[in-house]
Design a protein around this nucleic acid. Structure first.
Lengths: 151, 151
DNA sequence: TTATAAAGGTCAAATAAAGTCAGAGAAAGG
DNA sequence: CCTTTCTCTGACTTTATTTGACCTTTATAA
């Protein structure tokens, strides 16, 4: 039996227009006669950051899903950071080093670097006792994705 | 379906003149064929203090609604945000509003705004089950402090 | 001074999205 | 076979929008 997820993936790709696609989860589910959560599955397995996709969404009335394909180009370094360097957990020191490296490479401006550092600083995370390192990794990852997402 | 609130928001913004807009709730409701309370919804979600708007109103005959956009100096805005607006806990929506307000005020660049938003996004904080709102406040506060002390 | 009309305010419920997660079932690898 | 990994679903959760019923405040006409 053909894998449904593959079909949905192909369909979504066909919906891309000038770098992005806008969808309604429920409509897709209807179209493919599957559970809505199936769409989430396709999104996470077929359109991950590692492949250069950024998925954003809004709930509630008028909500929807938007998938953007990033043209990596010179942001290759960032992409690698996100994919390889940023493991599940990183220490404050590692984060610091990564950010400094990106500033030196000119990928982050100095103000951006300071912001990023502040966001994952111990001071910002004092409330969290357990799993600080994983949280730091998540936050930094999202920050870098946001930078990637920017032209 | 186009979101009515968005249209109303745009319309209200078009009514701004030299820093403020004066409206009648009932007239707006009539114009957009909606419940009057819908206008209140738009006011609270689209024109919050966090974005630098101050909404005042008067009831009774001859009453109405007045929306002012406050424009303070950079440092002052930041300082106020950190001191007054940023409570111990803030929701994702509030954070969003604060950041958008700072971008609109030219205090954060668009890339910086996106970074900040990413840092406090639900996605960045999924790991944290308990006390997300407080953590978000802490992170955002540290980010703003970092910007404030930049020279 | 009081009644009434003309504002605006609040809140809970209905509706419309999307997200999460555990677990069932199917495929693939050994 | 047996185990692991991939696919798919359903129940439950979270968030956003819209409306309607009921409440409060204010100006002014009687």
């Amino acid at each position: 039996m053909a894998i449904l997820s593959n079909d949905i993936e192909i369909y979504i790709k066909s919906r891309f227009d000038s770098g992005f696609a806008e969808l309604k989860r429920s409509e897709l589910a209807e179209l493919f006669q599957c559970a809505p959560s199936q769409i989430n599955y396709v999104l996470t397995t077929r359109f991950p950051v590692e492949k250069g996709y950024v998925v954003t969404s809004r709930r509630g009335g008028g909500g929807g899903i938007r998938i953007r394909k990033i043209n990596l180009g010179e942001k290759e370094v960032l992409y690698r950071m996100i994919k390889d360097v940023l493991k599940d957990e990183i220490s404050g020191r590692q984060a610091q080093a990564i950010i400094e490296g990106l500033v030196e490479a000119g990928i982050l401006s100095l103000p951006q670097g300071k912001m990023a550092a502040a966001a994952v600083s111990d001071r910002a995370l004092t409330l969290v006792r357990d799993g600080q390192a994983s949280l730091r990794a998540d936050i930094l990852k999202q920050i870098l994705v946001a930078v990637l997402y920017e032209e």
